[in-house]
């Protein structure tokens, strides 16, 4: 069984108001050295399949079709062999 650990994150050029709000909160907690916070999504998908090449291809398609919005987001993932 393979687990895909997928990060979907905003492109650097896209403003992240949530991240800005968190930065402001962290500053008010006294963490003055924090310059920027970016919020992203983390998604795990388990596959009943052990062929990494096959799964990798599917994860790319899944991200392109549904999990990421190509206008504003990018994604990265890694595969991990797991037992159920």
């Amino acid at each position: 069984m393979l687990k895909a650990k997928i990060h979907v994150f905003l492109k650097p050029s896209v403003l992240d108001p949530q991240g800005q709000a968190v930065t402001n909160s962290l500053h008010s907690l006294g963490y003055d050295a924090i310059r920027e916070t970016r919020i992203s999504k983390y998604i795990e998908i388990k596959f009943d399949e052990n062929d990494e090449e096959k799964v990798s291809k599917q994860v790319h398609t899944i991200c392109d079709k549904l999990l990421a919005n190509p206008n504003t987001e990018k994604y990265a993932f890694e595969l991990e062999a797991v037992r159920d």
């Binding site: 919005n69 206008n71 504003t72």
Partner: peptide
């Protein structure tokens, strides 16, 4: 419409959250 590709662009979270 934007998610379906019938119109370009994306509706993101309001700047004010």
């Amino acid at each position: 419409l934007t998610e379906s590709g019938l119109l370009p662009g994306t509706l993101m979270m309001n700047k004010s959250l």
